[in-house]
Amino acid sequence: MNVDQTQFRAAVLDPARTVPDGLIDPEGRRAGKRFDVYRNNVVVSLSKALAEAFPVICKLIGDSNFSILAGHFVRQHPPESPLIAFYGSAMPEFLAGFEPLRNLGYLPDVARLELALRESYHAADGTSFDPVILQDLPPERLLAARFTLAPALRLVSSDWPIAAIWHFNTTDGPKPEMTQEAALVTRPGFDPVVTALSPAGAAFVEALTSGETFGTAVEAATAIDPEFDLTPTLGALVSGGALTAIIED
């Protein structure tokens, strides 16, 4: 009655399975509650990790619903790496396909934002340059310049007002209004900051992150919104410490 780890794992993740033969208590009886300790440790510790990773999802659906959801998630998507600080990358897709929550269409994108925040928190440190350099640069050189962006920068685009939803549920942001919005994540120090960007602002940042010139990035934004105002987007990048180097050809 040897118990291999394939059997052990299957039974740990599925409470409906009987405990494998050969796992016993000191009297030689089949382990029951003793095996459940492992079942419980696995699901509870991983559910807790998910609750820490997705506090806003947790708040939006409530702790008890999240706990049910996490139980399903853990069994369908056990971690593929021991880095539990990064567990849960499949959560947006899982939420999109989770029938009981189909009416909350914004949840997957909010989960993407929470993943982006966590990635940003653990990303490599970057040193931003003095923004005065931007003001001193002649316009034609600025338009031709490309930028290196901080490793902690993330951009999450959405059909939903995800930055507003995030602020409303974490700080005392105003009640979200329905609008298309991208969330810019920057990390000026150690704590990531979320800034709402218009689709045009998002196009600007996306162009810069793909290595386009400043001028091309502005064009990408004005193609979406001819009235595009660069100031708030650039301000968020500067104050977020997201611009780490200027590259001039």
Partner: peptide, 17 residues
């Protein structure tokens, strides 16, 4: 102890024979 089997990391220190 063990915690990973067939790529699944179970986040617990599981027992060995």
């Amino acid at each position: 102890a063990w915690s990973t089997h067939d790529t699944a990391f179970l986040n617990d220190l599981l027992p060995l024979p």
